[in-house]
Design a protein around this nucleic acid. Structure first.
Lengths: 339, 339
DNA sequence: TCCTCAATTGACAACGTTATCATTTATGCT
DNA sequence: AGCATAAATGATAACGTTGTCAATTGAGGA
């Protein structure tokens, strides 16, 4: 059985409150007393019991991060989440959340209602659906959303700039000489998806490149979607010279499809994506893509949540951070005979 | 402020102990009383406070899963870990652990010493190094290891059968007609790594295929290692017709290298790996590989730990589960002119 | 030396459960 | 009816902290 604060107090010849003060670095303790207490702590190998602290402070000291299935994008987020976990007093509880999954809902509800977590960070593609909305409103548990489907003034969020990222990539392709650029679009109810599409369209317009409806293809942002969309695109009378996947997963599917068809990338067709998944650099050729500053986004989100939890108003409750291009081998100028 | 057990007792006209009995499904409560209590719980929207329960039961109801950096293999594990989290009373705390990282050590030490976790699941490549060993011994926190570097009778573990998996794959390659099979080996201090190498060698011997030392190449099991090793292998006077990566990461590196060199896979050289990472099926051609039953391994490990935590002796403290082959497009018979 | 005020210290209540054991109530048997 | 026994219930003490506020100590000034 490990030592308690009482044992320490006894050994250090003082009250438990004084020991508590030393542990929590509160003022009003003489140097001499502090040293006695520290020595006693050392001797007894004492460590405060976290459950007791949690109970009396009515805080779980735990943040719940909602993740959809543990996929590629998620592992990037997770990596940073864990990294930040070190620096905070809060522990981080990963909870997977599928809107349709009854079990995950029950578990989450228990977590929130039993006060096992103080706050939530919601990561895409999770979002505040009616169930979450009810639960959060009813329990009053604070939360921060990462790249929400829709932005409303009440919801604190941190997001990457999808519009600007898509604009930059499309601009880059145009400047390379492409003017038949296919875009693999994603779910329509997703704000990021719409922003990316608009960023693409905006760049076309600015550079006076004719926009063709048949070059905007549904991909659902997944591998199979990109795969199918690329086959369709290449079957068009005037096929694209570049395929811009609204997500890397879709772009990878497209890349796979082109290679299946024997189309050379990037010599005949350029491919690029969005998200900068780790495997974007491990396929051949490396996938050019748009990177959100995921690390910074996650860090800002968690910090924002902690600010809210500790009643310090965060500097801003709505943050959008700029994206940047990551150019690799999958993009090049279009074949000259097609210009 | 949410309701407490006291409020429920008051409303239901009984003692808090009776409410506690109802909550925990203990016997000795009349149907009538139980209904009154349940009604009161409903009315007050009561949920028990977990921190209080933790304190009085001296349990954190939390299991810590030690992960190395959030990479590919980890996300597979994680996915299952989260899935299992639903089914248990225990919450799961992910903690990254780098032996050299002071911060991660400090955090882990705090978690264990402050009784914030009841037990640990250690996942590869994390292992019981001297620091962990001390910490675990001193605090007496139980743990289960997944595929330990070294197996000792005292340490409970769950592992995949690396020897058998490597044997099966090598056998398969031989039966396809390969007899110049390179093997990309991994860290020598890793049990799995050694088992895989021996499985490879055993199959060669059984089928009387001459073993060549120059075809066993160091790869460190990572992408770059595989990349380099493949280049070296293909530069040999008698290059291999198949490259068996001891890990998928190495195999992917090899695949990448071959494609860079313009070598056709699988027509000229076959490639296969070990681990069945998600992207093994997303490269072109799909990577043949050996799959550990990761889901089952993780599930068994967590169940084993919980058995130990609740003082029920698990059926077995050492479990090895069979691997299986996953054949995809990256393997084929060797070119006929080379046979 | 005494007084005032600030700094230090401590006694004890709270936090919301579960655990122990005594007490009350119901049941079955003679 | 009376008694033994089992079942249901409750009073109260933990669990190990932090928070409140009163008590004590020490320093500085008249």
């Amino acid at each position: 059985m490990s030592a308690t604060i009482k044992d320490v107090a006894e050994l250090a010849q003082c009250s438990i409150k004084t020991v508590s003060r030393v542990i929590n670095a509160e003022p009003h303790v003489t140097e001499a007393t502090r040293n006695r207490v520290l020595a006693a702590i050392q001797t007894l190998d004492y460590a405060p019991n976290f459950s007791a602290r949690r109970l009396v402070q009515r805080r779980a000291y735990m943040i719940c991060v909602l993740l959809h299935e543990a996929g590629f994008y998620q592992s990037t987020i997770l990596s940073k989440v864990l990294d930040i976990g070190y620096q905070q007093d809060y522990d981080i509880l990963i909870q997977s959340y599928y809107p349709s999954h009854t079990k995950s809902k029950e578990k989450l509800e228990a977590l929130v209602r039993e006060r096992r977590v103080d706050g939530l960070v919601i990561t895409p593609p999770c979002d505040v659906d009616p169930f979450l909305s009810d639960l959060l409103a009813q329990s009053g548990v604070p939360y921060v959303q990462i790249t929400p489907l829709n932005r409303t003034p009440e919801v604190p969020y941190v997001a990457g700039d999808d519009y600007q990222g898509a604009y930059l990539m499309t601009e880059r392709l145009i400047l390379m000489g492409h003017w038949r650029i296919a875009f693999l679009s994603g779910p329509r109810n997703h704000r990021a998806s719409i922003d990316r599409l608009y960023g693409y369209k905006a760049a076309l317009e600015v550079y006076r490149v004719p926009a063709r409806d048949d070059l905007v293809l549904e991909s659902l942002y997944n591998f199979d979607g990109g795969h199918n969309a690329a086959r369709i695109a290449m079957g068009l009378a005037e096929p694209p010279t570049a395929i811009f996947g609204g997500s890397d997963e879709a772009a990878l599917g497209a890349l796979f499809a082109l290679q299946e068809m024997g189309v050379k990338v990037p010599e005949e067709v350029s491919v690029c994506g969005f998200d900068d998944l780790p495997q974007a650099q491990q396929v051949w050729p490396g996938l050019s893509t748009v990177a959100h500053p995921v690390d910074e986004i996650v860090e800002r989100a968690i910090r924002m949540l902690i600010s809210i939890l500790t009643k310090r108003e965060p500097e801003s409750r709505q943050v959008v951070l700029p994206s940047r291009l990551v150019m690799r081998g999958s993009t090049a100028a279009p074949p000259p005979d097609l210009n």
